Simulated assay, not measured.
Amino acid sequence: MPTQPAPSTSPAAGDTDALLRAELGSAIRKLRKERGLTLVQLAERAALSHPFLSQLERGLTRPSMSSLHRIARALGTTQQALMTVAAVPHPGASADSVHLVRSGEGLPVANRGGTARMLGAPAYSAHPVEYTGVGERFDEYYDHPGDEFVYVVTGEIEIDLQTAEGPRLHVLGPGDSIYYPGGTPHRWRAVGDGSRVRLLTVQNATGEADRHP
């Protein structure tokens, strides 16, 4: 029988968190420099503070999904593409063919009403994200080049889509899913208790300006 890797082979939670934050900050800094932007210029484009971006690039803090979305748009990529770099290969998986994420692993990014956790890695063409907890009021609209699939695991949400045929509102409960094309402005909110909502989204990386930030 195959054996499980010993628990001692995994880095401590605090060390892993620091490593993931450093990877994310490094990816943002690299892409910013490739775009020929200073920290101040990126801060202006993303409508964020210069000190916050400086701390983020040094791995001293982490962004919210909202601020990461603003940074990604200013850099011509997506928040999911940036999040994929904050992925550490699991000791029991092959870096060439398998990306294994255990429960509780991955860098959690604050999302209004809960957290978002990237489950993918840069080498793959789909970006799966787990959302735990959702706000009970609509936030700003998000859009990105890749098509997106949303599956409701628990709880209930209302999703607002700005389609070519006009606005569309859909209420989704456990087991429901929805798929919409890239470029569709969208946002969602919880119906009832937002802490009970758990979602899985999968975004197609096709069409992104930078597959490997």
Rank of each mutant, 00 (worst) to 15 (best):
V98P: 02
L24D: 10
S125A: 15
H90F: 03
P122I: 00
G25H: 10
E23W: 01
H50P: 00
G59D: 12
L20C: 06
A27V: 03
P2R: 10
V101R: 15
D176C: 11
T184L: 08
Y124V: 07
P63G: 04
S103T: 13
I157P: 05
T16S: 15
G175E: 08
Y179G: 01
L200Y: 04
L20F: 05
V98D: 13
T77W: 09
R211P: 09
L161Q: 08
P181N: 08
R102D: 08
Y179Q: 11
Q4C: 00
S49A: 14
P108W: 09
A164S: 11
D15A: 15
G194I: 02
L107N: 07
Q79H: 11
Y142R: 11
S26P: 01
E208V: 15
G59S: 08
T201C: 11
H186K: 09
G166N: 05
G25P: 02
V129N: 04
G135K: 03
P213V: 04
V85H: 11
A81N: 11
G113W: 06
R137I: 07
G76I: 08
L172C: 10
L119P: 12
R21L: 10
D193I: 03
R32L: 04
F149C: 02
A123T: 04
P167T: 11
A93K: 03
E57R: 01
G14W: 02
P89E: 09
L169Y: 14
T201N: 10
R73Q: 14
V101N: 05
I159R: 07
R102T: 02
R168P: 00
R168C: 05
A95Y: 01
P145W: 07
V88E: 13
T206W: 11
R168I: 12
S125D: 15
S177N: 13
A126Y: 07
A43C: 08
R211T: 12
F138H: 12
A27F: 03
V101L: 12
V101M: 13
G133M: 11
D96L: 11
A86V: 06
R32T: 01
T84G: 01
G14A: 14
A72I: 02
Y124P: 00
T61W: 09
A13M: 08
P108G: 06
I157R: 03
P5Q: 05
T206M: 10
L119V: 02
